[in-house]
Design a protein around this nucleic acid. Structure first.
Length: 416
RNA sequence: GUGGGUAUGGCGCAGUUGGCAGCGCGCAAGAUUGUGGCUCUUGAGGCCGUGGGUUCGAGCCCCACUACUCACCCCA
């Protein structure tokens, strides 16, 4: 027996309808918001993620599926969606189209992690990216897309946490202040945080170690270091959210683990799905495009984990549309009507009606039982009466009612 | 990478002081040959995660390994 690789999941025929449900809502939502789909490759040059996501991040440091291909190129399975989209934006000159460009993607992403509830090695992300404007309205648009997606799915009670970690200029000042503060308190910080003080002091704010948390309580707050421009940006975003009645809480300690974020960052969090509570995360990344070799282009976006979304919907008892079932099951009265039965099925299918028959030589009675278990909506028996009269009796499996129809009426019956 | 838990038919589980491997669901067939669901009968399906040890005898006790799972870290 060869098992499924660690941290991956089969999506089985009996549950794929849940995915279709979500995918349909994603496409509907995207079209309402004027988002076009972008599909980028499953793998990219490793360099893209080193420079894009950042070589001090955990994702790049220890979680990438990287390998040398037969041409000795270092290739990496994408660990997130944004870098590939940014690369495609530059490479295809999307910057010369009318700006901003809004797009969405739905893709597998891969991270070599230790699996646990809500965390897999291959998971699926729905993401939205918006390129080409610094305007805070773009941030509002992105957050409101995520928010209305949850509303459309009937998910309530998520906490939206937002923060502004500042642009290059004000982040430098804040970083300096943090370094100074943490250095003074270094004996109370865990070893990992001590290592982070100089490389990426922002990350210390995210530590869950009790002793660190105590120190963090008194740490300088990034809001106090924002330049006038960032402050104004933050206010406009908040006003936009207010006018859309999107609830949020300011979390000055919200720091995201990908280096490309600048300015606005946000997360939608739930307490209902275990320790991995972040369902959706995103923010601005005004320096990413330039970082990977394009000309300076502002951008904002989010990523949303489909598996966590499903966990959440399950935990909240959110209803998902029933799976599609076949309309008609056709049974020959006996073996001599086998071919007549095939003709009827073919006729139904030609007319767009889903129809099935027994393919394993079951007895008449067993076929009935089978039809019941499979949940087919209607049942039809083909025998002497039908062949001679051209009238078919259709049995409604839910209530036992029998309706008699000719061939033409049969088709219009299902088109009602 | 660091901890805790678990491992017995397709799924969910029981298995007594160590003594013939079971139950429920599901699956398959049948109960006077043109109508399912309820009920009844029958059947298929397991090297008890792997390797060692103790014992006359191990699903059970001991050791190691592996896988799964939850949590830390980090993220969606």
């Amino acid at each position: 027996m060869i098992n499924i690789p660690k941290g991956t999941k089969d999506i089985l025929p009996q549950e794929s309808y849940k995915w279709h449900f979500i995918e349909n809502i994603i496409r509907e939502l995207s079209s309402i918001h004027g988002l076009l789909e972008i599909r980028t490759p499953t793998f990219e040059h490793t360099e893209l993620f080193l420079r894009g996501v950042g070589d001090t991040t955990d994702i790049v440091n220890k979680e990438m599926y990287s390998f040398l291909d037969k041409g000795d190129r270092s290739i990496t399975l994408k660990p997130e969606g944004t870098a590939g989209v940014a690369r495609a934006y530059i490479e295809n000159g999307l910057g010369s189209l009318p700006q901003p460009i809004k797009m969405y993607y739905l893709t597998s992403v891969f991270r070599y992690e230790k699996p646990q509830a809500g965390r897999l090695r291959e998971h699926h992300q729905f993401g939205v990216e918006l390129f080409g404007t610094y305007h805070p309205l773009a941030d509002v648009e992105i957050i409101s897309i995520a928010s209305s997606f949850f509303r459309k799915l009937g998910i309530e009670g998520l906490t939206l946490k937002i923060n502004n970690i500042g642009c290059k200029k004000c982040r430098q000042n804040y970083n300096d202040a943090l370094k100074e503060f943490f250095s003074k308190n270094s004996e109370d910080l865990c070893p990992i945080c001590n290592a982070r003080i100089n490389k990426n002091p922002l990350r210390v704010l995210d530590c869950k170690e009790l002793s660190c948390k105590k120190v963090i309580l008194n740490a300088p707050i990034c809001t106090d270091f924002l330049c006038a421009e960032c402050k104004a940006h933050k206010e406009t975003v908040e006003q936009g959210l207010n006018s859309l009645s999107i609830d949020y809480t300011n979390d000055p300690y919200l720091v995201r683990g990908l280096d490309y974020y600048t300015g606005t960052v946000f997360e939608f969090v739930s307490e209902k799905i275990g320790a991995q509570g972040t369902v959706c995360g995103g923010g601005r990344y005004n320096d990413l495009v330039e970082e990977i070799g394009g000309k300076s282009t502002p951008a904002v976006g989010f990523g949303l984990g489909i598996e966590r979304l499903l966990l959440l919907m399950e935990a909240m008892g959110v209803l998902i549309r029933e799976k599609e079932t076949t309309e008609v099951f056709v049974i020959p009265q006996n073996d001599s009507f086998q071919n007549e039965c095939l003709k009827v099925i073919s006729y139904l299918r030609e007319n767009g009606i889903s129809a099935e028959n027994d393919l394993s030589g079951r007895s008449f009675k067993s076929q009935l039982k089978y039809a019941n278990k499979m949940g087919f909506k209607y049942l039809m028996v083909i025998g002497e009466t039908e062949v001679n009269s051209g009238i078919f009796s259709l049995k409604n499996m839910a209530n036992g009612e029998i309706i008699e129809l000719n061939k033409i009426e049969l088709v219009s019956f299902f088109r009602r």
